[in-house]
Design a protein around this nucleic acid. Structure first.
Lengths: 201, 201
DNA sequence: CGTATATTGTAGTAATCGATAAAAAACTCA
DNA sequence: TGAGTTTTTTATCGATTACTACAATATACG
């Protein structure tokens, strides 16, 4: 169907490969040489297909949210807020420990700090983290409205707490923590769940 | 007292300046141009005094532990384990929100990921984070031995949980969280303290 | 003063960074 | 087949990276 010479690479596969490199080495630590090598795409083709390094990262980030990080919106569909929180932790740990991709969460490992030229990436990741927190907060607000959570609970604080633990788990994963260690932390983090803890792990 | 031409800069002041640059931009994001400019030291002098970029970072890290991050060993001197945990959070938040230096914790912002050439720095920071966690764990083990914490508590898990929240707070600080927001998270994190929560915040 | 020592300032190193120009190659359509 | 279109290939581009050689400078010591 296309007009000229056909591509030798699949755009989404190349994007997945780029995502892995950004994930493992961070935005600035991922050189275009490493990216092109992992993607199997030479440099002019990469620029023709994706624009530049920053745009490539942003597209990889979109793909990250759609595929490996899709556990988050799925977790929020759990019937109870408590179940949603449990699935958030489970999903985050499953992703962080998945041997098919690097440890931790791209929203954290991608770039917390960077040189001035990469600050837009820091901000984009920060905004994405804030969006994740906001999604959790809305889920908890709905739980309060439904009587699933006590009316006295501050959904914003609870959501920020849960998300903070998840970012902390990502840092722990970067340090080589094991799955069991992360699960123990998550179980302990749920001890502060509002309204008593019937099941202790 | 020295033999030849005297230095035009103070080594510790220059190290403090370098620490701020590493803290704000991360190890790889801190260029030697930015470092020399902030330190007020030209390049040959920097290399004569500190060796190279990696050694400079390691010395800045030592200084970080001695000065801004000294809240950690101090917090562990609190009379009770619960008090130690509270002071850990308070110290971490005070440091993260101090306008005199960048937000967050150098052990997290310095480098979670990096290009292959900077992996030794990632590992050094990871080891330092592990050492912090181990110090907290030992404090909690002592608390259990002293009857300050219930015998059934796993000090390693509790320490890892507290430290995980602290790393998460650092990520939140990188995203522009306010002091109040961090304090709310810390207060909530302490709700899971073993042995009941007399004071709820 | 003169010599030794150590730092400073200037200039520049090779290598790598992200990003491209230009031409050859592979397809569609007339 | 041949014109038109798009990608690949090859060879780079200037800028920036971490790093250093060399000579001038400023001190202490004899």
């Amino acid at each position: 169907m296309p007009r000229g010479r056909p591509r030798k690479f699949d755009v989404e596969e190349a994007l997945d490969a780029a995502l892995l490199v950004f994930w493992r080495h961070g935005y600035e630590g991922a050189s275009l040489a490493a990216l092109t090598k992992a993607m199997g795409v030479n440099m002019p083709s990469l620029y023709a297909a994706f624009g530049n390094k920053e745009l490539l990262f942003r597209k990889a980030l979109e793909r990250y949210l759609q595929r490996p990080a899709s556990y988050l919106p799925k977790a929020l569909e759990a019937p109870t807020a408590r179940g949603a929180a449990e699935q958030l932790f489970r999903g985050a740990i499953d992703m962080a420990m998945n041997p098919r991709h690097p440890d931790g969460c791209l929203l954290v490992q991608g770039a917390l700090t960077a040189s001035p030229s990469a600050e837009p990436i820091c901000k984009a990741l920060s905004l994405t983290r804030a969006a994740a927190e906001a999604a959790v907060r809305r889920r908890f607000e709905a739980a309060i409205a439904a009587g699933d959570l006590p009316a006295g609970v501050d959904a914003a604080i609870l959501a920020r707490y849960i998300i903070t633990v998840i970012w902390g788990l990502s840092v722990q994963a970067a340090g080589g923590a094991t799955r069991v260690q992360l699960e123990e932390v998550a179980a302990w983090a749920l001890r502060s769940w509002p309204g008593g803890n019937e099941r202790e792990l």
